[in-house]
Design a protein around this nucleic acid. Sequence first.
DNA 1: GTGAAAGCGCTAACAT
DNA 2: ATGTTAGCGCTTTCAC
Lengths: 346, 346
Amino acid sequence: MPTSPPADPPAARQRVQMADIARAAGVSKATVSRALSDSPLVSDETRARIRALAKSLRYTINLEARNLRRKDSRTVGVVLPFDSDTRRHLNDPFFLGMLGAVADALTVRGYDMLLTRVDAQQTDCAAQPFDTGRAIGIILIGQWRQHAQLNDLAARGVPIVAWGAQLPQQRYTTVGGDNVSGGMLATAHLIAGGRRRIAFFGDINLPEVAQRYRGYCNALAQHALPVDPQLRVSVPFVPGGGAQAVQELVRRAVGFDAIFACSDLLAMEAINTLRGQDRLVPRDVGVVGYDDIVLAAYYHPPLSTIRQPIGAAGELLVTSLLALVDGAQAPSVHLPTELIVRASAA
Amino acid sequence: MPTSPPADPPAARQRVQMADIARAAGVSKATVSRALSDSPLVSDETRARIRALAKSLRYTINLEARNLRRKDSRTVGVVLPFDSDTRRHLNDPFFLGMLGAVADALTVRGYDMLLTRVDAQQTDCAAQPFDTGRAIGIILIGQWRQHAQLNDLAARGVPIVAWGAQLPQQRYTTVGGDNVSGGMLATAHLIAGGRRRIAFFGDINLPEVAQRYRGYCNALAQHALPVDPQLRVSVPFVPGGGAQAVQELVRRAVGFDAIFACSDLLAMEAINTLRGQDRLVPRDVGVVGYDDIVLAAYYHPPLSTIRQPIGAAGELLVTSLLALVDGAQAPSVHLPTELIVRASAA
DNA sequence: GTGAAAGCGCTAACAT
DNA sequence: ATGTTAGCGCTTTCAC
């Protein structure tokens, strides 16, 4: 035994393994393996005996070893961006919610989830859980700017699905909300409430936000309202962004009677800031947010917003990835978005 | 080659592996292994050559194989309860936030996280990631009622750390907030604001809530105020719970001028419900919540609450677990809680 | 400094 | 129906 250590390492090596069961049962490892995986090649009596033994010895199969041998596993990699510049901390309610939805969808199907955070700039690291053989594929949650790098990964054959907008010449699969119609719904709702000067809060360098802006413009056009570039404030998704955006609007001295904010957090910050300026929502300014995070309903005034179907998204991200892993196609999908009417834009 | 399949399986087996690098470099696998793990046993020249080759071939070591051989890994299991009765969906902002904090703490230390959801009743499944050799230890996030089962796991030698209250005769490590002082801080703050009839919203069957209730009673006693059992409403942590609790109070026809709610969500629901009854917060009723979730500051009125130090908790859960894995002791810890004064209890 | 070979804990031909 | 044996992709003695 060349590799056996002189003594038991610290407290390890207590773990009972298949050979122990085999010895105790007086059979070979192969039989134990078969019994434990319900192979028809083993007699009912033996199977029962072995299973009982395994249970009483608290044996659980070593999955890493099995995976190595079978070249397969039931683990999918979920990667979240780690935006080194902006918020260090993973606390965005929407993405966290999405994470929960994906976790649920995986659990239901008997898959585990290996969660990693990678620098949003270093997208090539995203495939690491796959490359290192720990995951059968990758689900990306968050805002990923590196379109080209994701294309490379897909081209390399990494099964990968991302949450986000569908882009031209995209070789990877995305699952996203229908941002254009989301933007239209929000804007049309504000217009229907009699608002005419609708500000847009969001960074249109992000593909999803750009699409929402397109929807916003469409809705204005449909009602023969002008698109005033002064009303668009490019605000990053960081705490305090909503307050800044309102102040920017004030600084520009453009009149506005409504805001369409590209996240609920942004909307709430904006409402708070407006309140500080004695402009009440919805009386003086109508506001519509985006995402319908849990807290939107709890807010005062309850926030009208565009719901992204987070549960369906989790399911679809998972089923698409599993399809990809099976070598099948997985078309990119736009999930329908929905206007949730509450009080903030009445 | 008895096990080699007739043809390449679907699209797999493309993966370049160590033997490929060895062949290409004209050395043995052993040398490649050494070069890639910075062993001093290999010449600088060879190392450089091999590393370059590996990079150009996009080789990444297969971690599962390495782990199997080395009997060690850098993955920790994080398990979240899956409360089959109440909320199916993983969307509690506080636990999700905690999950984020743990993810960050692990990332910083170069560990990965294997996330699983298990039925809150079946706590013994919680050790599965460990038992199956996929994780070196387990971090439990959420409300775990099965004290005894967790003790069993710890007794079995599973390195395990849970978020939660410290209980008598506890053999596993917990990291938790200081709930007694949290309860006192909240209650004392309400008393200081002139409130005398303070309702308590929470299910004292949960250890953490029980401790908060103790703090509540302490604070009342310190100010020579009576503890009225009619003012305690046992409310589960489910959506709609806050509204129910307020209605229950009304049904009981007990007067109250303040509420201490055991979660921010509960507090917000309560405030909304009160508003529907034309009782304004803080004018008519003072409210203090618990957790200080991100949205507490955004709420209107901004919610006074007890902050649980979620970032520190994530760090501590991780360092404690890693200590345990190293065979060291990891004492249970109470993290200090903090009163965040905003407007809801002025 | 490098290679040969054994083996981590399991599975799957191939025997019997 | 069960046992034997040869690996999965890697690391690590041990020998040179």
